[in-house]
């Protein structure tokens, strides 16, 4: 890396952290229980808006994995999410009505919260509709993974976003609160992911899946990025640069092997395409607070209107993490 690049990225990182620092006033603490976070606690950090119906399953899922505490920013929910979260004994909740977009899609808020509460912890930064899958997640708690990463002095762990969708139309089966969304959205695309490397940040840029296949076939460049690095052992200088797709310092983005081997990696099962999508799309199109003029949401509304299904005859029915491993979407690396 040239000295100039290094200097540039260093400035970039400082600027991002300063942005996060300035945005701290947008966050009103609603109910902070951060004092109860143990020294080696594993944290989940998330920003949400109106996710009341998914929340119970979300909390249950991550508690079962062994997450100790949740750091959550509520971006102006009016569906009772806030009250629900306030009542949870392992949730620290902030509230803001500021613009999601001007906070760089919530990343500034998260960076600030992690700067204050995440240092020294393993932090899993996800959306409410993303469910983390890692090798052996059915038999080993998440601490087994973080302990293992610690022995190799690895500080970041990647996960590919796998869009899950139902066999029929998205609205066909209504989602009940507390239900496992993957009972409904139980299919995914197994082998149409396109990868390139970001030369400056050195992360991989992965696109593909059902959204690229059906909604962005004519504009693949705009297809959503699916590469994420959600699990990080946070240190003081770290920050997320663009959503959770890439981090600075960029050594954290080196989660892939370049000499033919496989490093360990996981997946984020994405429960977007369930019956709650319709209401969300309508709201988000009115708010226009999402990335690139909410073009993703425009595409979703188009899909919803046409009544088209994301399912095709080569869609794979989800079984477990071993299936994802065999299909090559994730890897055990040298963890056995």
């Amino acid at each position: 890396m040239s000295v100039w690049d290094r200097y540039r990225l260093r400035w970039r990182r400082k600027k991002l952290r300063y942005r996060a620092y300035r945005r701290r006033r947008q966050l009103d603490p609603v109910r902070l229980r951060t004092a109860s976070i143990a020294r080696n606690a594993i944290l989940v950090a998330a920003v949400l808006r109106n996710e009341r119906s998914l929340l119970p399953y979300f909390l249950r899922y991550y508690r079962q994995l062994g997450v100790d505490h949740f750091l959550i920013v509520d971006n102006g929910s009016d569906d009772g999410s806030r009250e629900y979260l306030e009542a949870q004994s392992d949730v620290s909740l902030w509230h803001t009505t500021a613009s999601y977009k001007s906070a760089r899609f919530g990343v500034d808020w998260l960076n600030w919260i992690l700067m204050r509460n995440g240092v020294g912890h393993w932090v899993l930064t996800v959306d409410i509709d993303e469910f983390f899958i890692y090798p052996f997640c059915d038999t080993r708690p998440i601490r087994a993974l973080t302990d293992w990463l610690d022995t190799y002095r690895l500080r970041s762990f990647p996960a590919l976003v796998v869009d899950m969708y139902p066999k029929g139309h998205v609205d066909q089966t209504p989602y009940r609160e507390g239900q496992n969304p993957f009972e409904i959205a139980d299919h995914f695309d197994s082998g149409n992911y396109m990868i390139s490397r970001n030369p400056l940040y050195q992360n991989l840029w992965i696109q593909g899946g059902p959204r690229a296949r059906t909604m962005f076939a004519d504009a693949p460049h705009n297809a959503p990025s699916l590469n994420k690095i959600p699990l990080v052992k946070w240190r003081w200088p770290d920050c997320y640069a663009s959503s959770t797709h890439m981090l600075l310092p960029r050594s954290l983005n080196q989660v892939y092997d370049e000499w033919g081997g496989e490093k360990a990696s996981g997946c984020l099962l994405h429960a977007k395409f369930i019956s709650t999508l319709g209401a969300k799309v309508a709201e988000e199109l009115a708010r226009r607070e999402h990335f690139a003029e909410s073009r993703e949401y425009l595409a979703y509304s188009e899909t919803l209107r046409s009544g088209e299904s994301l399912w095709c005859k080569w869609s794979e029915k989800y079984v477990n993490w071993r299936q994802l491993e065999i299909l090559g979407l994730m890897s055990k690396g040298n963890w056995a």
Binding site: Y193, Y256, D257, W259, G260, E262, S265, G328, M330
Partner: peptide, 21 residues
């Protein structure tokens, strides 16, 4: 097998944690 996977990987697989030069 785990070490083999980590050092040699599965031939012809390009994915999030295996992107050979």
């Amino acid at each position: 097998m785990a070490v083999e996977r980590r050092t040699r990987g599965r031939a012809g697989l390009y994915m999030q944690s295996r992107f050979p030069r």
